[in-house]
Simulated assay, not measured.
Amino acid sequence: MSLSDLIRQHLAALRALLALTLVTGLLYPAGIWAVGQLPGLRDKANGSIIENDGRIAGSSLIGQSFTDADGAPITWYFQSRPSAAGDGYDGLASGPSNRGPEDIVDAPADPALLAAGSDAAAAGFEPSLLTQVCTRSHEIGAREGVDGSRPFCTPDGVGAVLAVLGTFAHDGTVTPTRVVSVNEPCVAGRTGPGQVFLAEYQGVRVECAQYGEDYSAGRIVPVPGDAPADPTVPADAVTGSGSGLDPHISPAYAEIQVNRIAAARDIDPAAVRDAVVAHTAGRELGFLGEPRVNVLELNLDLDRRYPVSGPAGGA
Rank of each mutant, 00 (worst) to 15 (best):
S4G: 01
D5W: 01
H10W: 04
L11R: 08
A12G: 04
L14K: 02
A16Y: 10
L20Q: 06
T24R: 13
L26H: 01
A30H: 05
G31Q: 09
R42G: 09
D43A: 05
K44N: 13
K44W: 14
K44F: 13
I49T: 09
N52R: 11
D53A: 11
S60R: 10
L61C: 08
F66K: 03
D70S: 15
D70Q: 15
D70K: 15
W76R: 10
Y77E: 11
Q79M: 08
S80R: 09
P82F: 12
S83I: 07
A85F: 10
Y89D: 01
D90R: 09
A93W: 13
S94T: 07
P96W: 09
N98C: 08
R99K: 12
G100D: 14
D106G: 02
A109Q: 00
D110H: 03
P111S: 00
L114F: 00
A116D: 06
A116G: 13
D119T: 01
A120K: 09
A122N: 05
A123Q: 04
G124W: 04
F125C: 04
F125Q: 09
E126C: 01
P127L: 05
L129N: 05
T131M: 06
C134M: 01
T135Q: 07
V146C: 00
D147K: 00
G148L: 13
G148F: 05
S149P: 11
P151V: 02
F152R: 03
T154K: 08
T154L: 12
P155S: 09
V158F: 03
G166P: 04
G166T: 01
F168G: 03
G172I: 06
T175C: 04
P176D: 07
T177P: 07
V179N: 07
V180L: 11
E184W: 02
V187H: 02
G192S: 08
V196C: 10
L198H: 12
E200A: 15
E200F: 10
Q202M: 14
Q202K: 14
V204Y: 15
V206M: 14
A209H: 07
Q210F: 09
G212L: 13
Y215M: 00
A217R: 04
G225T: 03
P231C: 05
V233I: 07
P234T: 06
A235F: 13
D236Q: 03
A237L: 11
G240C: 09
S241A: 11
G242V: 05
G244M: 11
P251S: 04
P251A: 05
P251F: 03
Y253L: 06
Y253C: 06
Y253D: 02
A254K: 06
V258K: 01
A263I: 05
R265P: 14
R265S: 14
D266L: 13
D266I: 08
R273L: 14
D274C: 12
V277F: 15
V277L: 14
V277N: 15
H279Q: 10
G286K: 02
G286Y: 04
F287S: 03
E290T: 10
R292W: 01
R292N: 00
N299T: 08
L302H: 01
R304E: 10
R304T: 10
S309R: 15
G310P: 09
G310C: 12
